[in-house]
Design a protein around this nucleic acid. Structure first.
Length: 554
RNA sequence: GGCCCGUUGGUCAAGUGGCCUAAGACUCCGGCCUCUCACGCCGGCAACACGAGUUCGAAUCUCGUACGGGUCACCA
């Protein structure tokens, strides 16, 4: 058979050549060792945490090597496509402050020299390569229907074949003559284009994966589909064409692709492309009934990236947490460089886990508390109010009604050597600040077990007499100490511990009563600062209210 | 089932034949810190899946077993 004739029959209108493509998309001019990576999502309208994770590795690998990362849209499966899919992806990344140097930048917009970056717009590239493969005798049309293929699979099943699929003797259309093909094509029969595999199952190929190390497997023998009946390429073929002509040096993707590597190696070879480096990333897992499984879109709310925005985790927190999963020594680095840009971290593929890590919300909270504890009061204010604007309008109104006051609230014990770490996400701010706002405050005078209402009332009365809103912190504290003795408490906690029988309690009990009266909380940050924010009228008001509550109960 | 990958405390993990009586972090539990909480500090619980082999010596190398995961589409 004359392959040129076949190519012309199959692709009569394709004139672009491999050589022209090579010229149009020349190798990148990158510094030594710099990596060109890409993140290629399908526009399904859902951004999975795993997408963020892999994309983050892509960006990290690019930036840490002085290279670049671009965004390519893989919309070859029209069934899964969603209208606003592309915007959802771009917005999703923007929410995390992540962007790409090249590729799709919005719906219908893109930048970069290797355009187009949307697969549905790259038909001529795939067609040209497909034609070339036919010319070289490395691809052929297959007219088998879905019914025929499933019948074939059934037969293989029955025969107990170890290897199933369209290959070797099972590949019926492989041996079609030109005349047979011509007749079917002219009759309008639909066809797919298949690779004419030259692989030998007894030969083995070796892949040196950047993460998984050396992997050996049998050569591919399958005549895999390159172009579907509608002329759209399969993932495998698009991967070869795009990652070659977009001059990707390092392919980073989920490890579910590992099993397809033999196909990809065969394809790159057939096309005459240089094989890129591969890094197969293990998925983020979730604990389930004692075992592990992939984070599931349906079962796990935290699988959606939007979950974190809704809960009010700062993007920085999520990113830092992801960093610890990517390279666990990031934590040490972060401790040494608390405020450094995380892209300065010396990322390494070698330090990535070979198996999937369990997603740990508790750990995320810890990381997030650290992140928030390092923020300024202004940053906390804007983070919290931006979150509240969307998810808690009442809180938003309260916070923004008096930004100065809100910032003062967030300033309590912030900025020192030992910053408080009690906020992990913005949704906790409402509860954190509730007692500082009348609109959120619910009086609830619940005394500790060792204090009776009379004792508490005595403390409050005495305190009201001593209270002066203009006292500085030391004076304020000294006054509480001075209260202790006459009421039968000791200002010295150690003394109390040595002989508890001598006292009603210690200074902790006295200040607890005052704290409860002023805030209805047993635990708060620095009470002096809180009372200063509350103001003398409100403090007196609340203590008086507590007093009457205690006496009424008697 | 075939092929491939993996398995160190509850979790993330260091570890590349002797420095391992197995690091660090999170969680949990004690204790300390001139108010509570938080922070910080000190301490504690807790692991090399199993079995053979190689070796003077194995968490580390080899083989087998078990368990877990992935993949076998005109989906990506």
């Amino acid at each position: 058979m004359n392959n040129d004739d076949l190519a012309s029959l199959l692709f009569p209108h394709v004139h672009l050549t491999l050589e022209e493509l090579e010229e149009k998309y020349p190798p990148r001019d990158l510094p030594e060792g710099a990596k060109a990576t890409r993140f290629p999502p399908s526009p399904t309208g859902f951004m999975h945490l795993g997408n963020l994770f892999t994309a983050f590795v892509d960006i990290l690998a690019a930036r840490s090597s002085g290279g670049l990362c671009f965004l390519r849209i893989e919309d070859t499966d029209k069934k899964r496509e969603v209208e606003d899919g592309v915007s959802a992806i771009i917005n999703g990344f923007a929410a995390f402050g992540l962007s790409f140097q090249e590729g799709v930048t919005g719906f219908g917009t893109e930048k970069g020299l290797y355009a187009p970056y949307t697969q549905s717009e790259r038909a001529e590239v795939y067609q040209a390569m497909a034609k070339r493969l036919v010319q070289n005798g490395q691809a052929y049309p297959c007219f088998c229907s879905e019914e025929e293929l499933s019948a074939m699979r059934d037969e293989q099943e029955r025969a107990g074949a170890q290897v199933k699929g369209y290959f070797g003797p099972w590949a019926k259309c492989r041996e079609l003559t030109y005349e047979e093909i011509e007749q079917k094509v002219n009759a309008g029969q639909s066809w797919v284009l298949r690779l004419r595999s030259g692989g030998d199952e007894n030969k083995r190929i070796v892949l040196d994966d950047l993460i998984k190390g050396k992997i050996e497997m049998p050569e591919n023998t399958m005549d895999v589909v390159l172009l579907k009946a509608d002329g759209i390429p399969t993932y495998h073929f698009a991967h070869a064409c795009d990652d070659h002509f977009m001059r990707v040096t390092t392919v980073i993707r989920g490890d579910e692709w590992l099993a397809s590597v033999s196909v990809h190696i065969a394809l790159f070879k057939a096309c005459g492309f240089k094989l890129p480096k591969y890094a197969h990333v293990a998925p983020v897992m979730k604990e389930d009934a004692g075992g592990k499984r992939k984070l599931s879109k349906r079962k796990d709310p935290e699988a959606a990236v939007s979950y974190f925005a809704k809960e009010g985790y700062p993007a920085e927190s999520v990113l830092d947490y992801l960093m610890t999963l990517i390279n666990s020594n990031f934590e040490d680095w972060r401790r040494a460089n608390p405020r450094a840009d995380r892209f300065e971290f010396p990322f390494s593929f070698k330090k990535m886990s070979q198996s999937g890590a369990l997603f740990d919300l508790v750990k995320l909270c810890d990381v997030s508390k650290n992140v928030i504890s390092l923020m300024t009061a202004d940053e906390v204010y804007s983070g919290a109010s931006e979150w509240a604007r969307e998810y808690d309008p009442e809180l938003y109104n309260i916070l923004t009604a008096d930004p100065g006051f809100a910032k003062a609230v967030f300033s309590i014990e912030r900025g020192g050597d030992k910053p408080r770490k009690d906020i992990a996400k913005w949704s906790e701010v409402r509860d954190y600040a509730a007692y500082l706002y009348d609109a959120l405050y619910t009086p609830n005078i619940a005394l500790p077990e060792n204090i009776n209402p009379d004792g508490a009332a005595a403390i409050l009365k005495a305190y009201l007499d001593a209270y002066d809103a203009s006292d500085d912190k030391d004076t304020w504290f000294q006054k509480i100490k001075d209260l202790c003795g006459p009421l039968g408490y000791t200002p010295n906690v150690k003394e109390y511990k040595q002989s508890p029988e001598k006292f009603k309690g210690h200074i902790g009990d006295v200040s607890s009563v005052i704290r409860i009266a002023a805030t209805s909380r047993r635990n708060t940050p620095d009470l002096h600062a809180i009372m200063a924010l509350l103001g003398k009228d409100r403090v007196r008001e609340r203590i008086n209210a507590a007093l009457s509550c205690l006496t009424a109960n008697n």
